[in-house]
């Protein structure tokens, strides 16, 4: 598989949110607006690429029995680095996303890619895989955030173009479940047609 395909497969065919249904907690919790969704996606992308590379480089030296705890420590280290970077450069976003930044440690996407891809492929391939899956996640979160923001407050990326409040429930918890359900259905419909 070429490097380019490694990146593109994460976008549609193996999209972590719409197809693999992984990492649902941040997907639902942080997509109250398009900007928030995108920041969460990019934060995960950062950790995913670096942890994929580190795990791929160290995999031959880690005994098989303790590999999962070892991966978790590697991922947690990168999450801590990310926390420092975000506190320094984007304190507002860090505050909005709150608890869900440290919770990237237990995001199934990151550990899943380590176990399914990074530990048996080269460093460059693992980086490409991380970029692909991370971008797929970012795009999915941005779309979900955009839909919720449009319906919930009548704005997109913070630019308001409908007067009034919108359907408030889409910014709240029930709207997250509902919007995600319909987006998955839409995604299934669109990709099913492509196969025929």
């Amino acid at each position: 598989m070429g490097k380019f395909q490694l990146i593109t497969k994460g976008l549609v065919k193996e999209n972590p949110t719409f197809v693999l249904l992984l990492g649902m907690c941040p997907t639902l919790a942080t997509t109250t607006s398009a900007i928030n969704g995108m920041s969460m996606g990019l934060a995960t992308l950062f950790v995913l690429v670096l942890s994929n590379m580190a795990i791929s480089a160290t995999a031959p030296y880690i005994p098989d029995k303790v590999r999962i705890p070892a991966y978790i420590v590697i991922i947690a280290a990168f999450v801590t680095i990310l926390q420092f970077i975000m506190q320094a450069f984007t304190p507002d976003i860090y505050k909005t996303l709150g608890l869900f930044i440290p919770l990237i440690v237990v995001n199934c996407i990151v550990l899943g890619r380590a176990e399914a891809f990074a530990n048996k492929n080269s460093v460059v391939d693992s980086a490409c895989d991380g970029i692909g899956i991370g971008l797929g996640f970012t795009i999915a979160l941005t779309i979900l955030g955009l839909v919720r923001e449009l319906l919930g407050s009548g704005s997109a990326f913070g630019y308001k173009f409908i007067d009034g409040d919108g359907i408030l429930v889409f910014v709240l918890a029930p709207g997250a479940f509902m919007a995600l359900a319909y987006l998955i259905v839409l995604f299934k419909k669109l990709t099913a047609k492509k196969d025929e």
Binding site: V169, A173, G175, F177, A181, V185
Partner: peptide
Amino acid sequence: KVFKGIPIALVTASILAMAFM
């Protein structure tokens, strides 16, 4: 057919969340 599995579960969860609101 397209709602089978996770999507219908999410719709259910949405209604349950509405009840908890």
